[in-house]
Design a protein around this nucleic acid. Structure first.
Lengths: 183, 183
DNA sequence: CTCGACTTTGACCTATGAGTCAAAAAAATG
DNA sequence: CATTTTTTTGACTCATAGGTCAAAGTCGAG
């Protein structure tokens, strides 16, 4: 007996994720989301208190999918035994398979750092935590500055998600990132 | 006897560049720009016909600075003789010295590809031309897929400009990119 | 069938933002 | 100076966007 939430909440959330992944926060209206979800605007407010909360929910969903993918891989998958490469593989796989979620994350993450209002504190912390975990793994293969290096890597993978489909292929990302790890 | 334009136009343009580099198009209001420029809003319309035209002017300015920097270097500057590396050096130098301009370019460039309205056609063509020129130089050092590779490289350098200052240093970018060029 | 709780919506409020315009203020010109 | 031209602004319009609310539909329990 799971909490049903009627499905509508999920439909709205999905619509929000779609909208926020193709346009930036300020460019997406609640009407836009309502239209995508085939729902009238006030209904959104029945399930979510405000635009920013809806955005956070959509972001969280996308982000947790990313986390699950990147850190939820069995450590040894044959060819790529090294942890760092395996992690990057998963990351790039996520790019390949759920570009939309990664887009949402990448498009908006800088807002958390530039707007100092406490509104995005939680979400920022989550993201920082993610980067630190990436750094931990990378530090086992890289010499120094692993935290910064990790942030760079996550940013490079992420930035490629922002490009229109088919412009910068995951293969190219992989080529660049993995190659740069070689000693 | 240069065309004076009174300076005010330039002040507004500079204010626009500042505003658009820290927030996205939809999040920047003409009031914001007016406030930064210490000017009343209607004055902006005296010099620029619309928000989008002002934006284009700001973008153009930033972009041409980038072009000048990347392609306007004397070919041989000692240590880095290879053209590709020299070009990337210039690119990363631009990141180092005019992060604000690069931010503006990177923050908005995807809009040109996702909105199919002919409004951004000109600007898109300019940017594509830039990437192609980068590709031409890189192809002298890289085996294949140089166009896509070039786009990836420009995107990686650019994406680092979007991060808050001091988060991903130009040195790290350089490390990753230049290293990935090594055979 | 009816009552009450949950879900959905039309109509509305308020704020903000792009863009206009006529009039005031400054410069330039004679 | 007086007048014409250019620059600047206060006061608007109109559209859109976030958010509210009371009323209308829906649906299961008694």
């Amino acid at each position: 007996m799971t909490i049903r939430t009627n499905g509508i909440r999920e439909i709205i959330l999905e619509a929000a994720r779609e909208a926020f992944s193709s346009k930036s926060y300020g460019d997406v209206s609640m009407e836009d989301i309502a239209k995508i979800a085939n729902v009238k605007k006030p209904l959104i407010y029945y399930y979510f208190p405000s635009k920013s909360e809806l955005f956070k929910a959509a972001w969280d969903e996308a982000f947790h999918k990313l986390e699950d993918k990147v850190f939820g891989v069995s450590e040894n998958d044959g060819k790529y035994v090294k942890k760092a490469k395996s992690l990057l593989r998963s990351y790039i796989d996520f790019l390949r398979n759920d570009r939309q979620s990664l887009r949402l994350i990448e498009r908006e993450k800088n807002r958390f750092y530039s707007e100092q209002g406490s509104s995005w504190e939680h979400i920022k912390k989550e993201y920082d935590g993610f980067v630190n975990r990436v750094a931990d793994v990378l530090s086992s293969e890289i010499d120094s500055n692993s935290a910064e290096y990790a942030r760079a890597v996550t940013d490079i993978v992420g930035s490629s998600a922002l490009l229109p489909d088919g412009q910068m292929s995951p293969d190219t990302v992989e080529l660049i990132i993995i190659k740069s790890l070689a000693r």
